[in-house]
Write a protein that binds this DNA or RNA. Structure first.
Lengths: 116, 116, 116, 116
DNA sequence: GTGGTCTAGACCACC
DNA sequence: GTGGTCTAGACCACA
């Protein structure tokens, strides 16, 4: 795993975890690696993983069983899709549309939709 | 003006300046506000504006006349369009398309293009 | 049974056992479930139950007959009432009163006592 | 400042900050000490203060101006009262009532409300 | 100067 | 074994 970008590592890890859940690699309701385990797998300090897990727990994607470990929430998949959809439609899309209109780019043409 | 987002403030200001030039609010070749002036207008430290102007000068959108002030380049508009088009098509668009397909969003429907 | 709270699980179990004794569900002097049994009932590691029983034995609420099992003490009920009364009045009550006054909550109104 | 209890230090600090806001020592909308400053004042690592501020920011009690510092929210006071009231009425009160009834303590008598 | 992230290493309570 | 908290110290970008 590479951490090129400006984004904090703990959020990049969070993203890849979301991807793993979306793609079905990590099953909702199942245990995920311990902070130490994932830390050594990714070559990252356990504290950093802790931060990732903290973040994901705050948005109810994963939860903790005391002394046992972290588990993906049963509805983790739906939550992720929902979160990302909402963010895309509310935050990113307006900016994209504004930019396209300023740059004179026609979305219909761009996406090769056929106008009748 | 709010600067809540993760992007550095000096780049956010740079973006709004580009927008002002694109939209015709700021005319190519004309003088733009001084660092201090714009700083107090936006409620931002002059150093931050300095960084913005530095950045815009590096990509030849604005230039400086010593002791006089900053001016928009004559071809500022074209340069901005060119820069942003290239960045949008090469960098952002692929990510947008990937995300839309993952989230099951149909661009043609989204932009209300008529499919025949 | 959920163990989401911050209190250690073994103490939470201890609390519910006290409640069972207070409410008469568990009779003083009688045998209580084995560590393994209660563990599987609650979906909890037997070690955790062991800790609970250890704790309850220390404060003389239950006792152990080697090779036979754990039993509630004959005077378990009185002991629990005594312990909890003292703790409640000395430790918790002052904090509760302070908090209610800070938050502007009137205990008399809260508990629907009639003021004449 | 003493940190006797089992509660994490960063939450204890959070509590004292809430108290400072409630009591009017810290005014809503004003800047609060930097992480380093408060850290050295309290004899605590800046990282720990960072955690406190992170927590308080998450629940919208304070907010951050980039490169400038942290500020108390304009409605910080109301938010705190609201949060604490809700927590008390929903979480603590039911437990208190249950306990009092099990222990045979009469709230009206306890709080010296006059029954007519 | 400010916050923010990360590491390394320690210690603790809990399961 | 698990998470959770804390420290010390470093480095970075930003204002």
């Amino acid at each position: 795993m590479d951490f090129n970008e400006h984004k904090p590592i703990y959020l990049q890890i969070s993203d890849t975890i979301s991807d793993k859940i979306l793609s079905g690699e990590w099953i909702p309701g199942e245990r995920i690696p311990s902070v130490r385990e994932l830390g050594s797998t990714l070559g990252v300090n356990p504290n950093t993983i802790m931060r990732t897990y903290d973040y994901l727990q705050n948005i109810d994607i994963i939860f903790n069983k005391r002394g046992v470990g972290y588990f993906t929430a049963d509805d983790a998949r739906d939550k992720i899709v929902d979160l990302q959809r909402r963010e895309f439609l509310n935050e990113e899309l307006p900016l994209i549309q504004k930019k396209m209109s300023l740059l004179g780019i026609d979305p219909c043409e761009l996406f090769k939709c056929q106008n009748s």
